[in-house]
Design a protein around this nucleic acid. Structure first.
Lengths: 315, 315
DNA sequence: GTCAATTACGTTCTCCGTAAGGATG
DNA sequence: CATCCTTACGGAGAACGTAATTGAC
């Protein structure tokens, strides 16, 4: 009872129902007339009903045939639409990308990149969640985001991860600070500085805490969540801070200076995080590709800056 | 660019999307696993997109595959519904029959027959137009009726016609009329009778007019449309009339008698009238079949009565 | 006689099942 | 090592095109 209909046969029948002429219908289907005739006959056998009344001179639909022709038209249209839709999605002309990214990344990298993506893939809906690492991972886990751009969280083993960038840390201080004119500083040189911390829940703080244990510094006791607040505190001379490169745009003010901090392990890797064994939609894959290309460019850019810095110091 | 999808392949894909396991899906489709695998591979080639991510251990849908699976489910369901629907119609379990019939036939034959048809084909909608011949033919021509049961109208050549019954004429008179006790009369015996006519537009009148030209009868000048009126006029002693057998139920009153009229050509053929080269729906064909069977029974019945009449008169 | 459908027939291609191969947990 | 998907391959049947046939106007 499991019949096999081919969309081809249905299309042929629709064409025949339209022009009611085997020879012409066969031409339109790029078939010889006998082959076409056989195709229709097999269709009638498959559905086990007479769909057409044929005389050698005229072809007419039976009432059942007319009924079935409507259904066939619907099915053929639906199948063709499904394939067209599928192709659009596969080619990245349609679709949806949902990205979860750390606020710093969302604010620094992504805006320009998303604009570029949109011009290249105008049919794709973009969803962007800017959230802290844990929330980013949760979004991926729940399937609400196709992938995340995040720093290493508590537990990444349940995900597929790939590093795409290593973010470096910068000292943020006032221009009148002793280290402000330096191209770079080493971590131990911060001994004695008054450090303003980010809140304990941030990935930056979690990353820095163990490294700073060896560096004697005077604690300011200040702890903030928002980077603009931090910038204002530093500008007011209450202390200095360490922030990842990606957040530097918060600190581009005339009264502030930013200095690269060099230290082993003082690099924050950024990962692309995805669900294990789950493939990306074409649109998401295209988006990720663009992001990775940008990351590579950024890395080269960073290295260039570093080399230039070393040359400037006359090494 | 004219791709061939088979519903079978789509169904296979749907099954696979449901259980995500080639071996089990193959079993459900009654295929060997390699054949099933090939079927899916060909489907992916046909739509030119990866629908599944296969590892030797796990099978997962790509986002595009999930999208297509929805469409496939829809198409498969639609195709199966279309076939089921078609079969229902072809088997007369569903459908619509529209009959156009002379009022006499509609009132005399059809009611019991339609009730019988309805019990046998409960899913079929029945439409009944009771109208005079010309209107019946118009309904068939317009496709609003599948067939008509009518007397020969002006122009039947445009239709396919088949006689199913020949209606005989009866004299309608009062019981005190000289001919009232007769089993049958010959047309010429009506000479001198006061005849009440039906209106000129009726097929009965058109049929009778030429035959009565040779019979000298006194005209009453009365002309009516409705048979109940005619019955009342005859009952009042204003004259007699000639009416087809099918209308006799109008004249079953204690004060009236009906007598078979014998004359060459004084028979009204009833035709089944259909559009040329247009086939009937299964439901309509079943209905027509029942009607014809009933007509045959009625004819035998009539002949029986006639034979009994002749015997009674001692021929 | 001509047009238009079907039937006949040989070839090609599709599609299946069995058997062997390879990857993953 | 057991599971499970793929590849390989030979055979059966499907499907096409050419040519011949039938039937209606």
């Amino acid at each position: 009872m499991t019949i096999n209909l081919s969309v081809r046969a249905l299309r042929a029948f629709v064409v025949l129902a339209d022009c009611r002429h085997f020879t012409r219908a066969a031409e339109r289907c790029h078939l010889s007339q006998p082959a076409f005739s056989q195709l229709i006959r097999r269709l009638e056998e498959a559905v086990d009903a007479r769909l057409l009344v044929r005389s050698t001179r005229h072809v007419a639909l039976t009432p059942e045939g007319a009924l079935f022709a409507d259904a066939a038209r619907r099915i053929v249209a639906d199948a063709e639409a499904a394939i067209a839709n599928l192709r659009d999605h596969a080619a990245g002309r349609k679709g949806r990308v949902a990205i979860a990214a750390l606020p710093s990344i969302a604010a620094d990298w992504l805006p320009g990149l998303l604009a570029q993506f949109r011009t290249r893939h105008p049919g794709v809906t973009i969803e962007l969640f800017d959230a802290l690492s844990d929330r980013c991972l949760a979004l991926v886990r729940e399937g609400r985001a196709d992938f995340a751009l995040a720093a290493p969280g508590v537990n990444l083993v349940e995900f597929d991860t790939r590093p795409i960038y290593t973010d470096r840390y910068y000292l943020v201080c006032r221009r009148d600070h002793p280290l402000a004119r330096r191209r770079s500083v080493r971590l131990h040189e911060l001994a004695g500085c008054a450090l303003i911390n980010l809140s304990r829940s941030s990935s930056v703080r979690q990353h820095l805490e163990p490294l700073l244990r060896d560096v004697p510094h005077s604690s300011t006791g200040l702890e903030v969540e928002q980077l603009p607040t931090l910038a204002a505190l530093v500008a007011s001379g209450l202390g200095v801070s360490l922030v990842p490169e990606l957040t530097l745009f918060h600190f581009r003010r005339p009264e502030l200076a930013t200095v690269l901090v060099e230290a082993a392990g003082l690099e924050r890797p950024i990962f692309v995080v995805r669900n294990k064994g789950q493939s990306l939609s074409a649109a998401a894959a295209a988006m990720l590709e663009m992001i990775q290309a940008r990351a590579v460019a950024k890395r080269r850019d960073g290295e260039g800056r570093a080399r230039r810095s070393r040359r400037a110091r006359g090494s």
